[in-house]
Structures are given as C-alpha cells and as structure tokens.
Design a binder for these strands. Structure first.
Lengths: 232, 232
DNA sequence: ACAATGCTTCGGCTACCATCGAAGCATGAA
DNA sequence: TTCATGCTTCGATGGTAGCCGAAGCATTGT
C-alpha cells in the first residue's frame, strides 16, 4: 500500500469540465466573482460554490472578499503554468480553445471608482508604482515607501500631510471591475486623481451619470511619462 | 455554447488515481508492460487495459509491441513536464510521493539478451552511439551511419561485411527488461558482444543458467572510454 | 497442432460526484 | 429596521465511469 500521490487529486480538480472552464477564465490573471465564474462555466451559483471551495482547498485559486462579492484568482503563476501545459497537451490532440476578449470601449480605459482612478490606466499606474518600489504591496495592504514620498512631492506636489485621515487608509488595493486586477484606492488614490484633474490632465465625462474619465492629449503624455510601462 | 477546452479531458485522464499511478510509474522514462502497470496501480489487467486505451487516445502514452507484451511509455518530455508540474502543485498542498528504486544487484548492470548486451551498460552504449550520431534511430528502426562504420572498424575491428545476414537486421532496438529503455540488438549488437568477449573485456558468468555478464577491470575502462556518458 | 501467456472486449454492478431546489447567512442599501 | 443581492450549506437525484468476471484474440513456445 504505497502512499497515494496527490497528483491525481490536483488533476481531478482540473479534470471536471465546469472547473476547467472556471480556471481557463482566470488564466488572464484577472479575478472574477463567484457568480461570474458560475456563468462562465454554465452552472448554477450553488454548484459553482462547491467547485470553488474544492479549488481553494486544492490550492489552485485564492479568494478575495470585496463587499458582497467574492473574487477568485489563480493562486500564482505556477498554477497558470501547469494549466498552460495541460492546454498544450490538449491542443496537439485536436482541440483548441478560443477566448473572447473584452468588448467595452472607453469605460475600460479610464473611469472613476468612487473618487480614484480605475480601469486600464488605473491598473497600469499601480503596476508602475509597485515595479519602481514607490509602494510595497502585500495582498490588499499597500504602503508608501520613502522613495514614493519623494516621487509624489516632486512630480505631483503631494505631501504626506495631505493624506492623513482619521478612518481611511492612505493606500489600499481595490479590485478593478474591468481589469480584474488591483488599482490604487485610499486617500492617496483620491489625491492623485484630484491632482490629475487640477493639472487638467483628465476630467470626468460631461454626460451625467457617466463614470468615464477623459484624458487630454497632454495629460495622457504626462501620465505616460510618469507611469508608462515602456511598451508605448 | 462555447467550444469546450479539452484541458479538462487531459486533466481528467491524469485525475483518476489508477491512471495517475501508472503515469508516475512511467515518469523515470522507462517503459512498462500493461500487466506491470496494472499491478503498479493495484487493479486487474482488464481494467488497466481500459485505462491504457484512454491514455493512448489522449496522447499521454505510446505503446510498443514486443512479442506478447505491450510496453507503454510516456509519449515525450512534454507529458513528463506537465506531470512534474502537477506533482509540484500537489506537493505544496501537503502530499509527497515516495518512489521505490530498483532493487536487483548485478543483473541490472550487464547481462546477455539472447546474444547481445543488455542492462545498464547496454542502454548506455546505445545512448552513446545515438548521441554521437554513429547510428540513427527512428522508433524501433536503427541504421548505422557512415561515421558509425568508421568508428566500428577503427575501435572494434568490425567491418560491414561481417554484419550481413539473410533474415536478421543489422541493427534493431530491443526494449531492455530492467532499464526499460532501448539497447542495441541485431547482428551488430551480437557482433559487438562477441568482440567484447574476444577482447577479454567481459565474459558471461560461470554459474550455469546465469545471464549476468562480468566486465573485467580493464574491460570496464575500455568500455567507458568508448561509450561513457561523461558522468564518470 | 496444442497449450500457455499477455492483453483485449463485453456485460453488469456499484459508487461516486456533479447538479439543482430550497433554505440559511452575510453584506450593503434604503 | 427592512429589503435586496451574493454566496453558501443541506438534501436528494441522476448520470457517468471505474471496476471485475467471463470470454475472446494474438503471440510464443513445445
């Protein structure tokens, strides 16, 4: 009676069609809510809940609570790699998977989330801050580094004193609705968005109720200069 | 109704405990017979047959017929890599697999298979020949290259004329019983073994019925000089 | 030719697990 | 507070797939 290898357990988690659909839906690195994953897999929420509990127990996905929602993402790149490998094996025996991309126009580009910047540019901004060690992120907690403070003072005239608030944290990771990755919230996120408006880099769309944020031509340039990812 | 990704299909193949046991048993690159795999998985041969058919249809294993037996091996390194990845994911959630190594003493090292060399050294020899492009191997068919002929003439005084036979091929891949990888059979394999004996590099064990081949001290050195894998 | 071995196919049984309806919590909004 | 939304737990059902016994080919050896 040799000790069973749990390779079978992990594989069987991926082996169910519903769970496999969920996992492939998460492959782009973004997080999805439980009910969205249910719809993605074509099953009811209660069934999805059961599946997600198993995936979590198996260490394939990690939940993140945000209000009433429960966002799920792949735990790390290792999981994604294995899924990629499985997809590769599956591909050469015949089948290929076609994924649908995002369809929305400008709302995904930049919009207001409460009082801070969200959308593609918002995510890009936090990515840039993190990559250049201007902030440190551990899960949902973000803290400003010393270099970060200098950077804000120099380029955006934001001083630490402006950011203190009795109940609200300076930095907070907020899950982006369209990108499904984190952008920057908290008093700093709000202050930066306000500064962008004051500098005439961007403004909320005029149409009432719209959350779209329109960047000016020069604003876009300045933003890219500060937070560009080098690909542009 | 989106086209189903067959990632689930492949994963479900690995997801069954019996099949997972078979696959992990094949992870060392050696080939095993259907009944051996059945025993490895703790199931009856007819059940194993069903599993192996599925694994073959899924492109995870490849069969090779040899006499009454049917040897199975992993199709390629990609499959092994994915299995490795799955094992890695499984490992960090708790479980680890311990594999038993080979137990036999000298029979695995070197022995006679009909009239040619088998065992660790036999496999090592064919590996060396293939790696140095002295032979070309495609599945079970092996052919001697021009460099190979020169090599044989120079180091072992074997000329192509000695190898012709009305019914028997010059080269043939023979599945090694202990190593479960190919070694060299055919008239060339026999001629080389015969030459090793003539050169007093090796001799069949004296005990009657034994298939063990004993290498002399100098013989081992000479053999390693010609076919060593560089690791010694 | 006959027997033995290795593997496969067939048929029926059983057990597991995905699935959904209904009800129960939790969070946020009015 | 009360209502609505999102998610989970519970219980029951049904389909599927693993499993083995028996029989059928294929190959090898005598």
């Amino acid at each position: 009676m040799k000790s069973g290898p749990d390779i079978a357990l992990v594989a069987s988690l991926v082996g169910d069609p519903a769970r496999a659909n969920m996992l492939t839906a998460l492959m782009n690195g973004r997080a999805l809510t439980a009910s969205e994953l249910a719809q993605e897999a074509g099953i009811t929420p209660q069934t999805a809940s059961s599946h997600l509990a198993k995936l979590e127990a198996g260490g394939l996905v990690e939940p993140e609570k945000q209000g009433r929602h429960r966002y799920y993402r792949l735990t790390d790149d290792d999981v994604a790699s294995v899924l990629e490998g499985l997809a590769g094996l599956a591909a050469r025996t015949g089948h290929m998977r076609v994924r649908t991309g995002p369809k929305d126009p400008a709302l995904r580009r930049a919009r207001i989330c409460y009082d801070h910047l969200a959308g593609d540019l918002g995510v890009q901004m936090l990515d840039s801050l993190r990559e250049r060690h201007l902030v440190r992120q551990k899960k949902q907690d973000i803290e400003l580094t010393a270099e970060g403070e200098r950077f804000l003072a120099k380029h955006l005239q934001i001083s630490p004193g402006m950011l203190t608030h009795p109940r609200r944290p300076v930095c907070k990771a907020c899950l982006d609705w369209s990108e499904r990755r984190h952008h920057l919230a908290g008093t700093l996120g709000a202050a930066m968005m306000q500064r962008f408006a004051e500098l005439k880099w961007a403004a909320r769309d005029a149409t009432p109720g719209s959350r779209v944020v329109n960047f000016t031509r020069t604003g876009e340039k300045q933003f890219a200069a500060l937070f560009g990812d080098g690909k542009h």
